[in-house]
């Protein structure tokens, strides 16, 4: 037999690389996480310093009595703040990931990208609906907890198809969400840690591990 098998090491490496590339969404950029975390921090800072007047106004009071929330402009501005953070974070995630794919000479919108999006969306949409239910039931105390828990579940679910850091970020968000449920007074703090700092921490880890 012709001994063409002289480099099993290289063969195995090539096999592993193709298995990973064909089944995992590797275009996700750590910069997306850092950017999303930055957006969340700015959003939380705006809420804290401008709307809540550095804590002189208690957010919990508003959340406890949704009538007060709906009778004031607070509810509107808080929702606007939240939606803007979300919009910028998602936009950043797409743009940075597209850039990473382009630089690596790979397609961005592939079957694995679709898998990631679908698996991300299932718990996320459930969480969104549940948050709306809380709103209609006039029970907003748990809204930070719900956002963190459902977002964490989404990440764990989508983490199967991308870097393992996403899985662990998801678990972290779930733990923070549970804590936010136990200590409802500190909801905004846990929200800021979960959506702000944790995105930056994990985004930085991902950037240094996979993009340097």
């Amino acid at each position: 037999m012709k001994a063409n098998f002289t480099n099993p090491n290289e063969d195995l490496q090539a096999i592993r690389e193709i298995m990973e590339r064909s089944s995992k969404f590797l275009s996700l950029s750590g910069l997306s996480g850092i950017f999303a975390g930055g957006c969340a921090l700015i959003g939380a800072a705006i809420a804290w310093f401008f709307m809540l007047e550095s804590g002189r106004i208690s957010l919990v009071d508003y959340l406890r009595s949704p009538d007060k929330l709906s009778n004031s402009e607070m509810g509107f501005y808080l929702s606007l703040d939240l939606l803007l953070v979300l919009a910028f974070a998602v936009l950043g995630a797409i743009l940075f990931s597209q850039r990473k794919a382009r630089r690596a000479g790979q397609q961005f919108w592939t079957k694995t990208t679709q898998l990631v999006v679908v698996h991300l969306m299932i718990p996320l949409i459930c969480g969104g609906i549940f948050a709306l239910i809380l709103l209609f039931q006039h029970n907003l105390m748990l809204v930070a907890s719900v956002m963190l828990i459902f977002y964490g579940l989404s990440l764990v679910n989508a983490g199967k198809f991308t870097f393992s850091e996403i899985h662990y970020l998801g678990l972290t968000e779930i733990v923070l969400g549970i804590l936010a449920g136990l200590f409802v007074e500190l909801g905004l703090l846990f929200w800021t840690v979960g959506f702000g700092f944790m995105h930056i921490v994990y985004g930085t880890v991902m950037y240094y591990r996979h993009e340097r």
């Binding site: 001994a3 098998f5 090539a14 193709i18 064909s22």
Partner: peptide
């Protein structure tokens, strides 16, 4: 060596099979 499959000798075929194993 006797278990090495001649059909997978080429890197391209290895690549095809690698992708099909996980999808």
């Amino acid at each position: 060596i006797s278990n090495l499959q001649k059909v997978f000798e080429s890197r391209i075929r290895l690549g095809i099979m690698s992708a099909l194993m996980v999808n």
